[in-house]
Simulated assay, not measured.
Amino acid sequence: MSPTDFDRLIDRRDTASQKWEKYRDQEILPMWVADTDFMAPPSVLAALHERVDHGVFGYTNTPATLNERVCERLQRRYDWTVSSDQLVWLPGLVCGLHLACRAATEPGATVMTPQPIYPPFMSAPRLSEREMLTLPMVRDNGRLRIDFDALEQAITPATRLLLFCNPHNPGGTVYRREELEQLGQIVLRHDLLVCSDEVHCDLILEPGLEHIPLASLSEELAARTITLMAPSKTYNIAGLGCAFAVIPDAQLRRQFQRVRKGIVPDVNLLGYTAAEAAYADGDAWNEAQLNYLRGNRDYLVEQINALPGLKLDPIEATYLAWIDVSGAKLENPAHFFEQAGVGLSPGRDFGDDRFMRLNFGCPRAWVEEAVDRIRRGLLNSLPA
């Protein structure tokens, strides 16, 4: 079967898959953690086979060709000029959030983050012994976005860092240029630093929308921004642990490097190998994946909104559906869906227990099966 056959049902049981092991020996479809059930691109598989056949797996430096490829990619896709020395390679995005809190602030400083948000955004400040301030987001014409007025009003003299996510997880919002410019003006006006998680930048589903890195808006804003990116979500290679930070400001970059030294390991050689192959030859594969994901998304939006008590707004990016379950009046939403046979991510982990997050980065047959199970569960819960 071809790696671009997204309908292929790949058995991930007994492979130590975090996603599938959670419900081992249970009749529950795992649709929670953000990895897909698609085979990685052919170029990635070929590069990994070649590297394994080489047979030596010693300590590895970042390949100069990978740095060059990333810089070329950022220039080509976003008109964003980045030099190799501004890249810091990491074994994942989450450690980047933690390092940003430690590098950009002192103990006791305030770190701001919107909510709902990917859980490490909320744990990183606390584990870094920083004060955390969460900002409720607003739903604007079906889009979940930062309330910029509330953001500016909440800033205090102790506020130093904003953790930002674009495309937003959960909800899939793609921030428009004018919104990013408004955010940038607030950042500059209040002398803030920003850590911008842009790991889902290559997963824009809505035609006509584009990803714009916050740091690409101006050199002044770039000097205040740590941008986090990775090929992991796009090409389903998260298990290989390869990500990078773009930190244009030399002093901030040195501080970031200092706090990671001896604690955060380097990327492993297979992670580098997969990343370079994905960025070199993975664009056509990703276009096919995006078309498939759009079909899954459209099906899911139509079907979920036809179910009693559930609501799903349009999804602009990512393969993660943020489902409003408040109308179903469920006492324990996570348990309800597991009982129905579908394992979702509880909204309470993201800061809003009215929602559940569903990963539709999987074969359509599983999406259809999940909808059928949810439908039966809801109908069985209605009073006789």
Rank of each mutant, 00 (worst) to 15 (best):
C101A: 14
I237C: 05
L193D: 03
R375P: 00
N268D: 11
M31N: 00
E21S: 06
P125C: 07
N61Q: 12
L217F: 14
A365I: 11
S326A: 13
L193H: 14
T159M: 09
T273A: 05
V199E: 14
E369G: 02
F121P: 01
S218D: 11
D281Y: 04
N141M: 08
D85S: 14
F38H: 15
L290D: 00
F360G: 05
G55I: 02
P346I: 11
E302K: 10
V367S: 01
E68M: 13
D140R: 12
V52Y: 12
C95G: 11
I10S: 03
T134M: 09
D140T: 10
P116R: 03
A215P: 07
P42A: 14
W366M: 10
F57R: 10
S218Q: 14
A321D: 10
T65Q: 05
D349L: 04
L135F: 11
M1A: 10
T15N: 03
P248E: 12
V187Q: 05
T225Q: 08
A321I: 02
H49N: 02
A230L: 06
Y279E: 08
E276D: 12
F38M: 06
P383M: 08
Y23G: 04
R354H: 06
G343E: 13
L310A: 07
C165M: 03
R8C: 11
F164G: 03
A100F: 10
L310F: 00
E206S: 10
P114S: 01
L252W: 10
R258K: 09
T134V: 14
W20H: 15
A158K: 15
I212P: 03
L9N: 08
G377L: 02
A275P: 03
N291R: 15
L45R: 15
V342I: 09
W366I: 02
H168G: 02
D281T: 07
E21N: 10
R8I: 03
R224V: 01
Q115D: 01
A321Y: 02
V199M: 07
C101H: 12
C201M: 15
A40E: 11
W32A: 13
V174K: 10
Y292V: 00
A100E: 12
F57I: 01
G282C: 11
E179H: 13
C242W: 02
